[in-house]
Simulated assay, not measured.
Amino acid sequence: MKRILAKGGVVATLALSVVLGASAVHAQQTIKVGWTIPAEESKYWMMKRPQEFPDIGKAYNIEWVQFQGTAPMTQALAAGALDCATQSPLALAQGTVSGGLKAYIVAQHVFEKPGSFSVYWAVKDDSPIKTIADLKGKTLSINTLGSGIYGPMAILLKQAGLDAAKDVKLVEVGFALSEEGLRSGRVDSAVMNQPFAARMEAKGGTRKLFSLSQQQPNIVHILEACRADFIDKSPDLAKLYVRDLTLGMQKALANREETLKVVNEVMKAPIPVLETYLLRDNDFARDPGAAPNFTAIQQMLDVYVETGMLPKKVDVSAWKHPTIVAPLK
């Protein structure tokens, strides 16, 4: 009887080990990903059309966690609560310099290039403001004080003889309310982003004053970053994820009609509104393979140092993994 009980104990122990081992493998194959709105079409495809990605749900799983911006995701990455997340170059740099975050840029979502949409400041058609220099003493909106678009804007004001900290008043207005702020007179010039710019332009009565592309032609707005320790410990899992980001971008660009539906499901924006700009010439640019533009990112980091948004120079090469970066097939 003792031998039978002992044998049973061994079997039970082995069974428990198998269960625990299986749970550990399952946990290891689940990646926690932060996301936000808008302009993450590759991730929206992965989220809403997982059947189009052979590895999702089979080789690995994704736990999607929504955030309201990149800065909170930077904090979540630094705390180890996320494995990968959408980032702006500035948020990632601040997390690196001040938060001790070590990460790799693995893909890129949207950027600006000549001919594409560029974030801009608008004024009313009848406004006496004709040049950047005319903004002295005026009120401008910005989505968030200290956001990534502040640096290029401050450079452009400086080139026109203005100090962004002294010669203009900046007020925080979310992109969705920028048009209302301008038309109501709350601000003299409002920052515009898509899809809100397309909506405002369709109504008329406003004009573009200046855009970020005047400071730098290839500004990177959002990219994908993963914690360095996650990639170092689980390189195969990271490769699966980056491979699907690459595939997601390809699907988004290849099938615009379906992408409109996918984005509608995520953003809840009417397809007729999305139709006016999404993946058209008046939208941001997207690299076909989701490849990060490290040269442009370095130029942006240098601007942030110049405008005091970063306390010291950051070398973008530290963010580039030798093998795990889009495009991956």
Rank of each mutant, 00 (worst) to 15 (best):
R227N: 06
Q194E: 14
L101H: 03
Q66D: 04
K251T: 05
M47D: 03
S234I: 00
H321Y: 12
L328K: 08
K113P: 05
F196M: 06
F230C: 04
L77Q: 04
K312A: 15
Y241Q: 04
F284M: 10
L177M: 15
A285G: 11
A91W: 12
D281N: 14
G289C: 00
R207Y: 13
P270I: 14
S116L: 06
T13W: 14
A198W: 08
T70M: 01
R207I: 10
Q216R: 15
G100D: 07
C84G: 06
I62R: 02
G289N: 02
G151H: 02
R256H: 00
T36D: 11
P311N: 04
R186V: 09
D315Q: 11
G146M: 10
S88I: 05
A39C: 04
K48Q: 12
M200W: 10
K169W: 13
A285C: 11
P89A: 13
S98A: 10
L77R: 02
V173H: 04
F175D: 08
A76S: 12
A27S: 01
E112P: 00
A238P: 00
K48C: 00
W35V: 10
I155L: 15
W121I: 11
A285K: 06
G181Q: 03
R199I: 15
L279R: 08
L170Y: 12
G137H: 11
D302K: 13
A76F: 06
H321M: 09
D55Y: 02
W319H: 02
M1D: 09
K239N: 03
K261D: 01
E180V: 13
G8H: 02
P288R: 05
G100Y: 06
A81Q: 15
L247K: 15
G308I: 07
S88Y: 12
K233G: 00
E265G: 04
A296I: 02
K233I: 00
L156S: 09
R227S: 14
L223W: 09
S98M: 07
L140W: 07
G100N: 04
T74K: 05
M309S: 03
I4Q: 05
V173T: 13
Y60Q: 06
K130A: 14
G204F: 12
T246M: 01
I142E: 12
A225C: 13
R183Q: 12
K136V: 07
A238Q: 02
I31L: 13
L245I: 13
N218A: 08
Q299T: 02
P38G: 11
M153I: 09
T323E: 15
T144M: 07
A228I: 10
T86N: 10
V65M: 13
P128M: 07
P128D: 01
K312V: 11
S213Y: 04
Q66A: 12
G205S: 05
V123Y: 11
